[in-house]
């Protein structure tokens, strides 16, 4: 497994290059030397503004959101022992998105800027906890995905209701952003607000990763080799809820990245859920940075939403992965 050794450094390098490329490209292309001098604060004020206030935070937001979703997806797949588990598919993102919309709609956000990420995280945790309760009762992923469909539909319906009642077009377009998912116009301020939650979630998932490896054996056997299953479930749900909720707070609901990245990574890490976490996060981050570059380069009257593009790529991949599975696994 030589490829495995270069996987993480390679993805890291590719991510840095992609974020750099994101700073070059746009409505006014900048040359690499102008971007570099802007990085080091020696460019003219216009370039500084474009790089530091617009392009870099946007690219970083795309990367962080992708990384959080890729990590959550890989961890949930390990916990539920199924490659189709993912925050978007399981309805976690939609529920987080609904909670965030509620906070916006009722103006709770005016109390403190922390209200929005916390609302999104609480929504994500509620959905993840419900799914885990269901996962304890049934071994069938079909049931879980159906619950996810239910959660997504409910969140969608509730969101439509809120939109129905929306007081003005301004809040309406805000909500559409939440449903579709976008990293346009993100600032470093917004990133710093959600970053602590992402880091906390990522740290929890990373520190409990070996428990995901032993879950390969099935729950009873994992207990047999010394896993505290209850604690593992709680921590994985908490970690995935924090990371997903934080990513929704930053970019709205973006689906399917968390399913595609781990699927590509898995063969390179010997199908070990623990070793798939970091590369999945990096690859998912990379995918979203590239997708967002695409969104910015395609000229349309209304800006394309990142979440829409992610779903256009991700949903067919989801169907393909589902069709590859042998039914004997359930």
């Amino acid at each position: 497994m030589k490829a495995a050794r270069y996987l993480t450094p390679g993805l890291l390098l590719a991510s840095v290059l992609a974020i750099f490329a994101a700073c070059l490209l746009g409505s006014t292309p900048l040359s690499p030397d102008r971007v570099l001098s802007a990085f080091f604060g020696v460019a003219d004020a216009g370039d500084q503004l474009v790089v530091w206030s617009i392009r870099l935070p946007r690219a970083l937001a795309a990367f962080l959101v992708g990384a959080a979703l890729g990590l959550s997806g890989a961890a949930l797949q390990g916990l539920l022992r199924n490659p189709l588990a993912e925050p978007g598919v399981l309805g976690v993102s939609a529920t987080a998105s609904l909670a965030a919309t509620f906070a916006l709609y009722y103006g709770l956000v005016s109390f403190s800027s922390w209200v929005l990420p916390i609302a999104a995280i609480l929504g994500a945790l509620a959905a993840t906890a419900l799914l885990t309760l269901a996962a304890i009762r049934t071994q069938s992923i079909v049931t879980l995905i159906l619950i996810g469909v239910g959660l997504s539909s409910f969140a969608g319906a509730a969101m439509s209701l809120v939109m129905n009642l929306a007081p003005n077009p301004f809040s309406l377009s805000d909500m559409i952003n939440w449903m579709l998912g976008s990293v346009a116009n993100r600032s470093f301020g917004e990133i710093t607000l959600v970053l602590p939650f992402m880091i906390a979630g990522a740290a929890i998932l990373y520190l409990t990763r070996n428990g995901l490896s032993v879950l390969t054996l099935g729950e009873e056997a994992a207990i047999g080799v010394g896993l505290n299953l209850r604690q593992q479930r709680i921590l994985t749900v908490l970690g995935a809820g924090l990371a997903t909720g934080a990513s929704v707070a930053l970019a709205g609901a973006i689906g399917f990245v968390g399913i595609v990245a781990p699927h590509i990574v898995r063969p390179f890490v010997g199908y070990d859920p623990a070793r798939s976490l970091i590369p999945s996060a990096l690859l998912a981050g990379l995918i979203l940075v590239l997708a967002d570059i695409g969104v910015r380069l395609v000229h349309t009257d209304n800006e394309l939403k990142l979440g829409v593009v992610a779903a256009l790529i991700g949903a067919p991949a989801f169907v393909w992965i589902a069709m590859q599975r042998r039914t004997t696994h359930d």
């Binding site: 070996n210 032993v214 054996l217 009873e220 056997a221 010394g226 896993l227 890490v269 199908y271």
Partner: peptide
């Protein structure tokens, strides 16, 4: 403890599956 054998969730390498037995000693795969 070896419970009734259930299918493995992922197609891991044999050596990795055996190594999972060292979890209680703090071993990590890889």
């Amino acid at each position: 403890y070896l419970p009734q054998i259930r299918p493995l969730a992922w197609p891991n390498r044999v050596r990795d599956v055996v190594a999972l037995g060292r979890f209680s000693h703090g071993a990590a795969l890889g």
